[in-house]
Amino acid sequence: MDLSVIWDDFIEYLRAEPDIQDATVKKIAGIPFLYVDTLLDKSDVEYLIKKWSARAMRGKRLHSDTIFFRTQSSIFVYRHRFYVPQEKMFCCGNLCVDCVRLKQ
């Protein structure tokens, strides 16, 4: 699955918010950092991140994880990532107790 499409949609949704001046993502040592330039407070920014990441992931088997990293004047920096859940998606035939056939 190409996550760059998900990232592009997510950043586009954030930039479309009237209270957000800019939103960018930078990869540093392979870890994506989200930079949000806004005058909103931290809780409002985290709500918008959660809202628009859910919208970007809609219809896909993905999860997101957001961890506050630091703030710099009006810029909030988060470690944000989209990832595929680590769970079995098929039956391997070994009679596992967590077999996908037993899920309802």
Rank of each mutant, 00 (worst) to 15 (best):
M1L: 09
D2H: 09
D2A: 03
D2F: 03
L3V: 11
W7E: 11
D9A: 06
I11T: 13
I11G: 04
E12I: 04
E12A: 08
E12S: 14
Y13N: 09
L14V: 14
L14Y: 09
L14P: 07
R15Q: 15
A16Y: 07
E17P: 02
D19P: 01
Q21T: 14
A23W: 11
T24E: 10
V25Q: 04
K27I: 02
K27A: 08
G30N: 05
G30T: 06
G30I: 04
I31D: 08
I31W: 10
P32L: 01
F33M: 01
Y35T: 02
D37S: 14
D37R: 14
T38F: 08
T38G: 07
L39E: 10
L40V: 07
K42F: 00
K42W: 01
S43Y: 01
S43N: 08
D44N: 11
D44K: 14
V45A: 13
E46C: 06
K50I: 00
K50D: 15
K51P: 02
S53H: 00
A54C: 00
A54M: 06
R55V: 00
A56N: 13
R58A: 14
G59V: 09
K60A: 08
K60H: 14
R61E: 12
L62A: 11
S64I: 00
S64W: 13
S64V: 01
I67T: 15
F68M: 07
R70K: 05
Q72R: 09
S74A: 06
I75G: 00
F76M: 05
V77F: 00
V77H: 05
V77R: 00
Y78S: 05
H80D: 01
H80W: 10
H80T: 08
Y83C: 10
Y83E: 12
V84Q: 12
Q86S: 14
E87Q: 15
K88W: 07
C92M: 11
G93T: 12
N94Q: 12
C96V: 03
C96S: 04
C96T: 03
D98R: 03
D98S: 06
R101Y: 06
L102G: 13
K103N: 08
K103C: 00
